[in-house]
Amino acid sequence: MTKQPTVILAVETEGSAAPNWPYTTRSLAMDMSGVQPEPPAVVSDPMYASLAGVLQAAHDHAARGKGHTRHGDDDTPFLDQPTMQITRMIGLGYPAGQIMKKADEAKRMVERGEYDAAVYEFFGIINYAAAAVLAIRET
């Protein structure tokens, strides 16, 4: 039997945490990055609070975690960072390829029981997908 992930995502809504979820967006982001996260995103539909938690954690991973350390340490806005610059030069194949590579890595991490590392890879996938959306909207 394989071990279940140790990181579970959720977000607080109007004073109460989603039932049976051990993490709020704030505590999850702090656990994963060691830094104080931004305030949670506004959740317009409580039925999607868990999705908002994942998206907020992916944002925090890029803005304050690994992505910031690698690409934004000099306060370069996301739209001016290498991911966006390369996407503009090469096209949507760049973020699509990165998404495929990260998905393969995440799958192998789960198979090895590296659940938290796999979650980080999926945060990267979300952020590369966001870069693709931003590139499409620039055209």
Rank of each mutant, 00 (worst) to 15 (best):
E114F: 02
M89Q: 14
M84S: 12
K102F: 04
K107N: 04
P77K: 07
A63P: 00
D104K: 10
L55A: 12
M100F: 05
M100E: 11
G65Y: 03
I90P: 00
K102H: 06
Y94C: 01
H71G: 01
F78E: 09
E105S: 07
L55V: 15
P82E: 10
Q85V: 15
K66T: 11
D75V: 02
Q85G: 00
M84Q: 13
R64F: 08
P82K: 03
M84T: 08
H71L: 14
K102R: 10
G53F: 05
I90C: 05
E114Y: 03
R70E: 14
K102S: 02
K107R: 14
F78C: 03
Q81F: 01
A52N: 11
D73S: 14
H71I: 02
E111N: 07
G91H: 05
D80A: 13
D74E: 12
D73V: 10
T69V: 14
R88M: 08
R70F: 09
P46N: 09
D80S: 12
I99R: 02
A52Q: 04
P95D: 01
D73K: 11
H68S: 06
A57Y: 01
R70D: 14
K102C: 01
A62D: 12
D75F: 09
M84L: 13
H71K: 07
T87Y: 00
P95I: 00
P77L: 04
E111G: 02
D45Q: 07
R108D: 10
M84I: 09
Q56D: 12
P77T: 03
A57S: 14
L79H: 09
S50L: 11
A62I: 06
A63I: 02
A96G: 01
M47I: 02
E111K: 12
